[in-house]
Simulated assay, not measured.
Amino acid sequence: MAKHRIYTTSFASVYPHYINKAEKKDRTKKEVDEIICWMTGYNEGELESQLEKKTDFETFFSEAPQLNPSRHLIKGVICGVRVEDIEEPTMQEIRYLDKMIDELAKGKKMEKILRK
């Protein structure tokens, strides 16, 4: 079976959409970066490096320094699918991130988004 197209899509090509979605709802790039770094363990410099290299989603998550164990607390529906029910690990990571960005855009407090 062929890989889903999102796996080979560069993270850098989707990143501006995350920023745009947040900023439309008066949230900030800094908050988006905080979510991404919380989830993946990248620091800001490492995140910037991944963006400059135009790393694809599959590599972005496979090279993540430390995927946050609390990300499994993320529940809910994104694109009509429950994130906790997604069986393919890379797709689940992508959807966890999508869900967190949605929560940011919906005005949730960062403490809740970061499962503190």
Rank of each mutant, 00 (worst) to 15 (best):
E31N: 06
G107A: 09
S70N: 13
E52F: 09
I36R: 00
A105R: 05
I19R: 03
E103T: 00
E48A: 15
E63G: 02
P65S: 09
E34W: 09
W38F: 14
R5K: 15
T40P: 00
G80P: 00
K53D: 13
N43M: 02
L51I: 13
I101Y: 00
L51V: 07
Y7M: 08
V14D: 04
D85V: 10
A12K: 11
A64P: 00
I6K: 08
F11Q: 00
K21G: 07
N20D: 12
H17F: 07
V14P: 03
E103S: 07
P69E: 14
P89L: 12
I78Y: 15
R71L: 13
H72W: 11
Q66I: 02
S49C: 06
K99C: 09
D102I: 05
I94N: 03
L104P: 01
P16F: 03
D56H: 07
E87Q: 14
N68E: 10
E34Q: 15
E23I: 10
D98P: 00
K99W: 07
D98S: 10
S13G: 05
E87G: 11
K75N: 13
R82L: 12
T40H: 02
D26H: 11
E93Q: 11
E84G: 12
I6P: 05
N20K: 12
F61W: 01
K109A: 15
K106P: 08
L97D: 06
M39F: 05
T40F: 04
V77D: 12
G76A: 10
I19A: 04
N68G: 08
G45Q: 12
N68F: 02
E52A: 09
T90Q: 04
G41I: 04
M39H: 02
H4Y: 10
E93V: 04
P65H: 11
T8E: 11
M91K: 14
I78C: 12
N20E: 15
R5P: 06
V32T: 04
I94D: 05
